[in-house]
Amino acid sequence: MSLNALPQLLLNGFFAGSFYAMMALSWGLIFSTAKIFHFAHALVFTVAAYGAWMVASQGMPIVGTFIVAAAVGALAGLAIDRGIYRPLRRRNALQLNVFLASLGVLLAGEAVIQFVFGVQARSIQGFTLSPLRLGRAGFTTLEILVVVVSWVVIGAVVLFMRTRQGTAIRAVESNPELSRAMGINDEKVYRNVFLVGSAMAGVGAVLFSLQETASPTMGIEPLIAAFIGAFVGGIGSIGGAILGGLLLGMMENLGGIFLPGHLQVIVAFLLLFIVLLVRPVGLFARDTKA
């Protein structure tokens, strides 16, 4: 056990947790509304990252890079919904088939990206780091950027859910058939959640690439963090997704107190399994009958 490392681990946990909270929300919104296990969200993430890399390497300032990534992500996500999920929806396809289609899109898309851009990792320029310290813990302005951007985006989505369109989303999330009976346009709602969720993934892709790099298979691990965060926190609950992501980030890092580094990947799945056994609706879901 190494308690000296605790302040650093707590801080790292908060940085990671903020990012995971945003990603969990981006994926969870799509899953709870459209009822699709959107594996291809990882592809949206990757496509947005490469879009960001392309403009950033032409000298675009970081703000523009975020905007481009959000837009590219939104379009990619919408294209996947229109091209793959909507036709399957219309045919009342089995959930398993939709999941397999999503996985197929992801794998095919990654292969295309690898073919077009090559295998090597790309870094995104446009943000210079300055080091900062808080007591014994060190970090940089990049970590601050991640936290600020993540929470601003989360806040924007929370506000959006209070608008009329947000209400329609809640309705379709709760009962799509009844929503249609009430005259709510469910396809428009699906379009909106894919746009919002995918735009968030695009922003996340830039944050991720700034901290690490962009590569063809970059999307799978953030996706797993996203869905674990969403399930742990509680599907259908915005607060749940946020708290689930935060908890995941904290646990992954605090696990470092007693687990050797190469086992930390287990922490995420351990957390998921425990939650599924003990409280399957999610830790922060408000009602146990879901």
Partner: peptide, 13 residues
């Protein structure tokens, strides 16, 4: 207006 035969309210809301 149409009122369905079951599941006719938004239960979570």
């Amino acid at each position: 207006r149409f009122v369905p035969e079951d599941d006719f309210v938004f239960r979570q809301l």
